[in-house]
Design a protein around this nucleic acid. Structure first.
Length: 550
RNA sequence: GGCCCGGUGGUCAAGAGGCCUAAGACACCGCCCUUUCACGGCGGUAACACGAGUUCGAAUCUCGUCCGGGUCACCA
């Protein structure tokens, strides 16, 4: 037994498997040429973060565009930060946004696929097997430093203005002997396993980031921690083992990871693994007092995706917006393919922005209005009521009392070539539909300054007599025009504009009066349709009510 | 501070040495259309961070400066 084998046996006595065992357990995937395997690896430390959603989207569409696989893996190696129900929050959150998962966790408790377990806390033995091999090869060693000692070293380094960290001569336990280690262990001292980095700061490494392009950095010379004192790996080590064994081809993650790439590449090389392609995604930013900064979980409500649900944004709108941020050519594609499934969008990582984009609510609203304008009345009814049920129960009651009626109201000016774009969020619908429901109807009978109350009253009185509920738009309008001459109004807008002094007003004014009478407001979609949905009795009632107030 | 990444209108962005008098979208403004509003159409305001250099020619290449972001844990 060599000294290194002795050390390996001392540190990880319970490990009896070898890497070869796992290599054969998780054979290469059988995928077609060019298929890319991606993943999202969230930590269950709380709700689904916007950044995680964005990253999941990018990984998802990358796999989809290449006929590959997208899987989820739970990085629960930090027990201190773990939150109960965190897995379900994140995974089910992704589903709500329509992000489908091919493999790994598909909800809070179920995992599918042949490369599991997809939860790092259940993979301890795998990591330890590889660490043991590294120790055998002299590439890893135990470190017994306490947090205080490490802290003291850092302070010394800072005082001397040299690079901080556990490397080179500062790596106290780098050459610890099996005997020394045995003594420490016997004394009950906890230890971590560190990499014995063969790297040097003098060397430069380069790699091609599939999003950012070529990046050059100093080689890693840090003896960073592989296994924490509880036997659980750090992110770096788990990443190398898992993405190798799960055969990930593309690691697309937040760009806060860029600086760790030298560690990861070194790990893959030392372990004898083929490294994946890396792509680093710029974060979504927000303007804070004129300064751009990454959206923060603590300061920004938008960081938590449930914010969007509460605001009433449709998940589909949020994804559509995120797509415009993820791919600079997505909007053009969307214009050319207004109704196509996003899954057919030919996504290219090269089209991703290199710098962080500012979260733009205006743009979200615009995208959302377009999305909702393209929906059928039935779809709107379904989504709106689903939203209201959760976030505005009172409104839900009102909407569902008579589904056919609500749907008819929602159908106005919808489904034609130029649908209206009144609704950006489901919460907007309450005001938009208010005059259709007695309990929400708060009419404002204020007339435009240009219209005299007596004219309005005379018009309403005359209209009441000629009103035919079944008129189509054309007939409906003709009827109003027909009333104009007797009231001294211009039936033709152009004639009125040519000589306003010759008339008391125009047909437009009269239409507005009717609109105010029927809906209690001046701006609405097509009035004729509204009156049909409201019904003759209700329209007459409202017209009379208005007349009485004049 | 060290190491990385980035900087084109208010925002997102196209842009690969001459096609740039710099596209498009959102927002904003105006006009037209119009029974209101919206939609739509037309038009408008508004940008290559700065300074050197390379070149006949620079938004594009190089260097420097400045600014912004990220990262330097037994967190991910």
């Amino acid at each position: 037994m060599t000294r290194q084998e002795e050390m390996a046996a001392l540190l990880l006595p319970q490990i009896d498997k070898t890497p070869a065992y796992y290599e054969s357990l998780y054979p290469a995937r059988q995928l077609k040429e060019g298929a890319q395997v991606t993943r999202i690896a969230p930590s269950p430390t709380g709700y689904l973060h916007l950044g995680t959603l964005f990253s999941a989207l990018v990984n998802r569409i990358t796999a989809t565009a290449t006929g590959g696989v997208f899987f989820t893996r739970i990085e629960d190696t930090d027990k201190k930060r773990e939150v109960e129900g965190g897995i379900a929050d994140i995974i089910e959150g992704l589903s709500r946004f329509g992000i489908t998962i091919d493999e790994g966790f598909v909800n809070g408790t179920t995992q599918i696929g042949d490369y599991g377990p997809y939860q790092q806390s259940h993979r301890a033995e795998i990591y330890q097997t590889y660490v043991k091999e590294l120790i055998r090869q002299g590439l890893a060693y135990p470190c017994f430093c306490t947090a205080e000692e490490l802290d003291a070293v850092r302070q010394e380094q800072e005082a001397a203005q040299i690079r901080t960290g556990y490397h080179g001569k500062w790596a106290k336990h780098r050459d610890i002997t099996p005997e020394e280690a045995r003594t420490e262990i016997a004394a009950g001292k906890p230890f971590v396993i560190r990499l014995r980095s063969p790297g040097s700061e003098e060397n430069r490494i380069r790699f091609d980031d599939v999003i950012k392009g070529t990046i050059e950095m100093p080689e890693n010379d840090e003896d960073f921690v592989l296994l924490k004192s509880d036997g659980i790996p750090t992110y770096h080590f788990a990443h190398a083992i898992d993405d190798h064994l799960m055969h990930t081809t593309h690691v697309l993650r937040g760009d806060e990871w860029i600086s760790s790439v030298p560690k990861h590449l070194q790990l893959f090389r030392l372990l004898g693994f083929k490294p994946p392609k890396y792509g680093h995604i710029s974060p979504l930013m927000k303007l804070d007092n004129g300064a751009k900064r990454k959206i923060s979980k603590r300061k920004d409500p938008e960081a938590a995706v449930h914010f969007f649900a509460e605001e009433g944004y449709d998940p589909d709108s949020v994804i559509e917006y995120l797509m415009t941020v993820a791919a600079s050519d997505f909007e053009d594609w969307r214009r050319a393919n207004p109704t196509a499934d996003r899954k057919t969008f030919p996504f290219k990582l090269k089209k991703m922005s290199v710098s962080g984009a500012l979260y733009d609510e205006n743009k979200l609203i615009d995208v959302s209005k377009i999305e909702i304008s393209k929906m059928s009345a039935d779809t709107v009814y379904e989504k709106l009521t689903a939203w209201a049920k959760e976030f505005d129960p009172g409104f839900f009651e009102i909407l569902t009392e008579n589904p056919a009626y609500t749907t008819a109201a929602l159908a106005i000016d919808r489904g034609n070539a130029k649908p209206r774009k009144d609704i950006a969020r489901w919460s907007d619908a309450k005001d938009y539909l208010a005059y259709f429901f007695a309990s929400l109807y708060v009419p404002d009978h204020t007339l435009p300054e240009t219209v005299h109350p007596e004219d309005a009253k005379a018009f309403l009185q005359a209209y009441r007599e000629v009103y035919v509920e079944t008129d189509d738009r054309q007939q409906w309008f003709e009827r109003i025009k027909a009333l104009c001459p007797a009231l001294g109004f211009a039936a033709d807008t152009k004639a009125y504009k040519a000589d306003p002094s010759a008339f008391r007003g125009s047909v437009g004014d009269l239409s507005t009066v009717l609109r105010i009478a029927v809906t209690g407001r001046r701006n609405t979609p097509d009035l004729c349709s509204i009156m049909q949905v409201l019904g003759r009795a209700e329209c007459l009632r409202r017209i009379n009510e208005m007349m009485n107030s004049l």
